[in-house]
Simulated assay, not measured.
Amino acid sequence: MIKIQNRRDQTIALFGLGSSGLITARALAASGVNVLAWDDSPPQRNKAKQEPISIQDLYSYDFTNIDALVLAPGVPFKYLSHPIAQKARAADLPIIGDIELLIEACPTAKFIGVTGTNGKSTTTALIGHMLQTAGVKNQIGGNLGPPALGLNEPSTKEIIVLELSSYQLDLTRDATFDIAVFLNMSPDHLDRHGDMDGYFSAKRKIFRDRQNIIKPQSAVVGIDE
Rank of each mutant, 00 (worst) to 15 (best):
Q50A: 15
F63S: 11
G97N: 04
A37R: 00
A27S: 00
I84R: 06
A30S: 01
R26S: 08
A105P: 01
I103T: 12
I55E: 13
S81V: 12
S41D: 15
S19F: 12
R45L: 13
P76L: 05
V75Y: 02
P73W: 00
Y79P: 02
I103V: 14
Y61D: 11
V75F: 02
Y79H: 15
A72F: 03
A91M: 12
Y61G: 08
I95Q: 07
E100H: 00
K78R: 15
Y59N: 14
L58S: 10
G74V: 00
E104L: 07
G21A: 05
Q44N: 14
I84M: 11
A85P: 12
A72S: 15
L102K: 06
G32S: 01
Q50C: 10
I96V: 09
P94S: 03
A68I: 03
N34V: 04
D62Q: 06
G74A: 02
P94K: 03
G32D: 04
P52C: 07
I103W: 05
D39Y: 07
H82I: 07
K87Q: 15
V75A: 08
S60Q: 12
L93N: 09
E100S: 04
I95E: 03
Q50V: 10
A90P: 13
A85W: 08
A91K: 14
E100T: 02
E51P: 03
Q86H: 13
K87D: 12
A72W: 04
G74I: 05
K78Q: 12
D39M: 11
A88W: 07
W38Q: 12
S81E: 12
S20V: 08
A90G: 14
A90R: 15
R26W: 00
A88T: 10
K47E: 11
N65I: 08
N46G: 12
G21F: 02
I23A: 10
E104C: 05
K47F: 11
I55A: 13
I53Y: 01
G32T: 05
L101N: 03
I53L: 02
D39I: 11
L101K: 00
A25C: 03
V75S: 10
L101M: 06
I99K: 04
L58F: 10
N65G: 10
Y61C: 13
P43D: 09
D62K: 06
L22S: 10
P73S: 02
D92A: 15
P83T: 06
P42C: 08
A88K: 13
D40I: 11
P76V: 07
F63N: 13
Y79F: 14
E104Y: 05
L28V: 04
P94C: 01
A48Y: 09
I99W: 03
L102M: 09
R45F: 11
Q56K: 14
I103L: 14
L58P: 11
K78C: 08
L80Y: 07
S81Y: 07
